[in-house]
Design a binder for these strands. Structure first.
Length: 836
RNA sequence: GCCCGGGUGGCGAAAUUGGUAGACGCAAGGGACUUAAAAUCCCUCGGUAGUAAUACCGUACCGGUUCAAUUCCGGUCCCGGGCACCA
């Protein structure tokens, strides 16, 4: 190993020394401390795929910089790390390499932990969590049984991708072009019973509380809001003509546009709707249509271009107001899963209804006119008129605007028991069953007599057997009687254990809380969770903007309502970091443009890699990888190292602000204005790129100062020079400490400090150093820059105007012209407005 | 289609509240040191004209507001992300 050389920066030696220090001093172990303000900084934990990629390095560098900055602000900082350890890749590895998923996962964790430690992240490793460990997932199982008891979970049939050759369920990413990724067989949609958690019960609160998240990016809040998709409408019933069987006598539809009720010219139902099935019973052609439409997988991209198709059922609905008979169609654009699986079609005012009506020759009846036009004329030749407006052709509702019409029609329907206002959400309940092996077993026993029964607390955890044989079809749990044979906890009879496992989003929905008390053995969470939560700063990829963050917010509210927590939201401030790009596209194995962090760390050291990543762009923007940019960062550190190493730190004469000459004052001004900017950039703006740029400017200024100082022979001046240089250097080393922690650690000790730089307090700005005697003023003529000069700071406005007007460059443009106005921005600018 | 972002030198970017466009860095070119290379240091570096001082142009495009616009408003084009038959 290299040793630390005083003159030359040797990253390997420096990093080994700093890491050694942190380890022996347990520098990042943290406990609750009511005397300090707490700060919980969390980066999204990784899936242990085998090795870190650049996206991880960036994510964790950002989190680490924030953590270390907050620590120097005097906060009690918790920064934990763990592993999102369940998931499909472990099963694939098991099949490909004949290695048990648990073994594969744990060895990946060991390797990646070393990589993280190499990068010098300030984690409290005593709190490390691996979600595949029974100590973790037992509490998830326990909590699920609590939700079960509360009626917040239920079982229902839901579709899965079924591979008929491998006889197994496929995850969406295992379906390639509609075929199983291994077998190549056409994937079928199959319905099987699965567990759901009632996130829809919390839809309104999840939507409302978005307004509390004022330190989240607007973008993420909008995405969540759209995902929840709240709409207000009316559910109304249409009677179905000539039906004798009770269940077919009426149908209900949901509409957000009850104002268009009088424009309904047909009704459309989903292919899976009971009336569709009824009509298909004695009609082979309809049956075939229903079968076809049901079998089509929800292939996302094609849906957009999919042609609107339909068939008349031969049935008729009765218009609730006019009594008119309306044909009922089966239409492929109506979804059984939204509203009631049926829509009232208003072709004049809905684009889909319009296209469908055009195609099948159905009437188009205008009932809304534009609110701002004097006439009812609007062009229905090529498209529907979908704006809200004023009702026409609607008998007693004519002339009403949207909201009045909504209310009046709702009242009319309600009075006759034909409809009422309802709120609908796009959000669906959360399906948590996965037909996979490498996940947390769902703690339920299915009894032929009692139905599904929760595993009692004393029998938890339901352990996932770790030594398993993988053949290539389906979950091994289904072939292990020793796992699935069980006695019913309620009646004691023979029963079968659930062999499905949880969606891995379950584990990642509460890990942030468990970090507060991960050693707790007799409970899920304790009071420590309330000390640390909410997470003050959460950092992770924007790809988790919807699902993970929504599930975690939901889980937090579930935990709160179970009395385990007392806050409403898990993450106070959110930073979504941008992707790492190379040659303009995302780094990925398939594109072959990945850059492995390890060789870079070996060549330049972790600090250079961290510095480049923080410097190249703001954290929330994409980062364009550049080898020469890394080189530049290395150059900066080497140069700064030499400067500090060659500086005499033994001369520690106290700084005497009142004795400084102009140059010395100027350096102090630069030092403290930089400190002020860097502090703001790190805390409020989180633009670490500009913070680093500001430090680089200060270093450049310092170098010029040192050059001049070297030429000076006056002893008194040299001593004062040294004092302002000392101050600048120590501030530089401190403000860089969060970004290049090893570098700063070693230099700080070399500068003669006895405490570690991580334990030093962030320096404070000396306001008096920011006082300037003179300022630079720019002069514009008609907004164009014409001159600049220095003036005394407190100059009178009239004197300033005179100086500006007398300037030779200005007079070229003002002589002989008529001066109409002079605008003065104090301390900055004079703009002279002239006319010819 | 809808909803968000974004478009600034050769490149990554900066300009925080409308007030000096291009900070900081990379690349490039020139020079110093060196037998040489590496490293280091110095100079130039948006475009056009000019030895220069300087002038004109310039933040995707067109228009507007303003003493003043990269920043605000209206329209157009392009790029990125998200959502998507949601009634």
């Amino acid at each position: 190993m290299d040793t630390i050389n005083d003159d030359q920066y040797s990253p390997q030696a420096v990093e080994a020394a700093a890491q050694q220090y942190w380890q022996t001093h347990k520098s990042f172990k943290v406990v609750e401390d009511s005397s300090k303000e707490k700060f919980y900084c969390l980066s999204m934990f990784p899936y242990p795929s085998g090795h870190l990629h650049m996206g991880h390095v960036r994510n964790y560098a950002i989190g680490d910089v924030i953590s270390r900055f907050q620590r120097m602000q005097g906060k009690n900082v918790l920064q934990p790390m763990g592993w999102d350890a369940f998931g499909l890749p472990a099963e694939n590895a098991a099949m490909q390499r004949k290695v048990a998923p648990a073994k594969w996962t744990y060895s990946n964790i060991d390797y990646m932990r070393k990589q993280l430690q190499q990068l010098g992240y300030a984690y409290d490793w005593d709190r490390e969590i691996a979600t595949c460990h029974p100590d973790y997932y037992r509490w998830e199982q326990w909590f699920f049984t609590r939700l079960f008891a509360k009626g917040l979970v239920y079982k229902k049939e839901a579709e899965v991708n079924w591979d008929p050759v491998d006889q197994t369920v496929l995850a969406n990413e295992q379906v390639v072009d509609g075929r199983g990724w291994r077998s190549g067989a056409l994937v079928e949609r199959r319905k099987i019973p699965q567990w759901f958690i009632k996130i829809t019960d919390y839809a309104q609160e999840l939507l409302d509380d978005l307004s509390k998240l004022d330190e989240w990016p607007e973008k993420v809040r909008v995405m969540q809001s759209n995902w929840i998709g709240r709409s207000e409408g009316i559910e109304l019933s249409f009677d179905v003509a000539a039906q004798t069987a009770e269940q077919y006598r009426s149908m209900s539809v949901y509409t957000t546009r009850p104002d268009t009720l009088m424009g309904v010219t047909y009704v459309a139902v989903a292919p899976q709707h009971p009336l569709a099935l009824l009509a298909a019973e004695n009609n082979p052609e309809l049956a075939e249509f229903v079968r076809q439409q049901t079998n089509i997988k929800m292939a996302e991209a094609e849906m957009a271009t999919m042609e609107k198709l339909g068939k008349p059922t031969g049935l008729q609905a009765i218009h609730p107001v006019t009594g008119e008979l309306l044909p009922i169609y089966i239409a492929n654009f109506v979804l059984m899963s939204y509203g009631s699986g049926a829509v009232m079609a208003v072709p004049a005012h809905d684009q889909r209804d319009y296209e469908f009506a055009r195609k099948y020759g159905l009437p188009i009846k205008q009932v809304i006119r534009p609110a701002d036009a004097a006439t009812a004329a609007c062009d229905l030749e090529s498209a529907a008129f979908t704006d809200k407006g004023i009702l026409i052709n609607s008998s007693e509702f004519d002339g009403l605007h949207f909201q009045d019409a909504f209310d009046r029609i709702e009242a009319w329907l309600k009075q006759r028991n034909k409809g009422e206002k309802v709120v609908n959400f796009r959000l669906r309940d959360w399906g948590v069953s996965r037909q996979r092996y490498w996940g947390a077993p769902i703690p339920i026993i299915n009894c032929p007599d009692c139905g599904p029964v929760a595993v009692p607390e004393k029998d938890l955890p339901v352990l996932l057997p770790e030594d398993v044989e993988f053949d290539e079809s389906g979950s091994p749990l289904k072939k292990m009687p020793s796992f699935y044979e069980a006695k019913c906890p309620a009646c004691g009879g023979d029963a079968q254990r659930e062999t499905d496992t949880f969606d891995t989003f379950m584990e990642s929905s509460w890990y942030y809380a468990r970090f507060a008390c991960r050693d707790l053995s007799d409970g899920m969470l304790d009071k420590r969770a309330d000390y640390w939560l909410p997470v003050d700063q959460y950092v992770g990829g924007v790809e988790h903007a919807i699902l993970h963050l929504l599930y975690a917010r939901f889980f937090h509210k579930l935990l709160r309502d179970e009395g385990l927590l007392n806050s409403d939201e898990p993450f106070a401030r959110l930073l979504t970091q941008g992707m790492v790009l190379k040659d303009g596209s995302k780094m990925s194995k398939s594109k072959g443009n990945t850059v492995d962090p390890l060789p870079l760390i070996e060549k330049y050291g972790a600090d250079t890699v961290r510095l480049f990543m923080m410097f190249a762009s703001p954290p929330d923007q994409t980062l364009e990888w550049s080898d020469s940019g890394v080189e530049g960062g290395y150059r900066f550190l080497r140069k700064l190292w030499r400067t500090i190493a060659s500086h005499d730190h033994t001369n520690t004469t106290a700084l005497q602000a009142d004795k400084l000459n102009a140059e010395q004052k100027q350096l102090r001004y630069k030092t403290h204005s930089t400190l002020e900017k860097v502090t703001d950039d790190c805390a409020r703006r989180q633009t670490f790129n500009t913070a680093i740029a500001a430090v680089m400017e200060l270093v450049n200024t310092l170098h010029k100062f040192l050059e001049q100082s070297a030429d000076c022979n006056d002893v008194e001046t040299r001593i004062l020079d040294n004092s302002v240089v000392n101050e600048a250097l120590s501030i530089i080393v401190q403000v860089l400490a969060p970004i290049v922690p090893h570098f700063s650690h070693v230099l700080w000790l070399q500068m003669g400090h006895t405490e570690a730089v991580i334990d030093s307090a962030w320096p404070s700005v000396d306001r008096s150093a920011l006082q300037q005697d003179s300022v630079q003023i720019v002069v514009q003529v008609n907004g164009k820059l014409r001159a600049r000069f220095e003036v005394e700071k407190n100059i009178e406005k009239s004197a300033l105007e005179k100086l500006a007007l007398d300037h030779e460059h200005v007079r070229k443009y003002t002589d002989g012209a008529n001066i109409r106005k002079i605008i003065v921005v104090p301390g900055k600018l004079v703009n002279i407005v002239v006319a010819d």
